[in-house]
Amino acid sequence: MAGRYHSPRREAAAQATRAAILQHARTLFLAQGYCATTVSDIAHAAQVATPTVYSSTGGKAAMFAELLQPAIRDPLAAQEASAALQAGDPREVMTHCAAAARHGQERNWDLVTTLLRQPPQDEPARQAVADIADGCLTALTRIARHLTRLDALAPGIDTAHATDTLWYYFGHNSWHSLIIERGWSFDQAEPWLLDAATHALLAQP
């Protein structure tokens, strides 16, 4: 029985079409919001038929979920989070933690600030938003446990309290408040948040 014919040129064209659709979806989501954007809008912008959008990407919610993947799996954020878990000095742990949070926010700022402030209700899209929060919380929990193992936390602070404190200082709301609402730069916000979180969490030498 003959196998299926494989055309590299056709596959490359399909991948290019898919990439174009996703890029136009990203532009429209950021410009007019997820809810206001239709699949027909995306198809028109990408100059393809509406069924092509569905066959290439799976639909609007699937596109939204895929567009958030860079924020979920940012390599520099992951590198800094890993360095935090390997550091033996508590202040070095906090420095890497702050850098990880900054990379995760700054490198994906338009997606995070625009698409996550009013998350959609479609289940795949909601799950993508939840994945970002879960990934951030998991990373911060691991760092809090590492600080506990180093016996670095101030008296009365346990791992759960440390996790919540890290979330308060390095979660999205703090960055949004300082940068969007107060006009700070990331270069201003990172050391300030690092200093505040360090003072709140670590035992004084």
Rank of each mutant, 00 (worst) to 15 (best):
R126W: 11
T113H: 12
R145Y: 02
I179S: 11
L150Y: 12
I132V: 09
E123W: 01
H161D: 09
V129M: 04
L147G: 04
A152S: 08
L137Q: 12
N173P: 00
P120Q: 08
L115I: 15
R126L: 12
R182V: 14
A139I: 05
C136Q: 11
L166A: 07
E181G: 08
T159W: 13
G171E: 03
A128D: 06
D164V: 14
I132M: 06
D164R: 09
C136L: 07
H146Q: 14
T159S: 12
F170T: 00
T114L: 11
R126N: 13
D131N: 12
H161T: 08
T163H: 12
Y169G: 03
R126M: 13
L153D: 01
D134K: 14
A152K: 01
G171I: 00
R145C: 01
S177I: 15
H172M: 01
R126T: 00
G135W: 09
Q121E: 11
L153T: 14
H176C: 04
R117M: 04
T163M: 10
G156Q: 01
P119M: 03
A139S: 09
Q118V: 15
H176I: 08
H172K: 00
S177E: 10
G135V: 02
A139C: 06
D134S: 11
R182M: 15
A160W: 02
D151L: 03
P155D: 05
G135A: 05
L166M: 07
Y169N: 01
L140A: 01
R145F: 01
G171F: 01
E181K: 14
Q121M: 10
L150D: 05
A130H: 14
Q121I: 07
D134Q: 14
P119H: 06
A133V: 07
T141M: 06
T163V: 00
G171K: 00
T141S: 12
R142M: 08
R142K: 13
Y169R: 02
L166F: 04
G156K: 02
T165P: 07
D158I: 11
A133Q: 08
L137Y: 13
R149D: 13
D122Q: 13
E123F: 01
I157K: 06
N173F: 00
T148Q: 14
D151V: 04
A152W: 01
A154N: 11
L153K: 04
P124L: 03
T163D: 04
L150W: 11
A128W: 08
T165S: 12
P124H: 10
L150I: 04
A144F: 07
D164Y: 02
A130G: 11
L153F: 15
Q121D: 11
A162P: 07
Q118S: 07
D134M: 09
G183D: 15
T163W: 09
P120E: 07
D122R: 06
A160G: 05
Y169I: 00
H176D: 06
D151E: 14
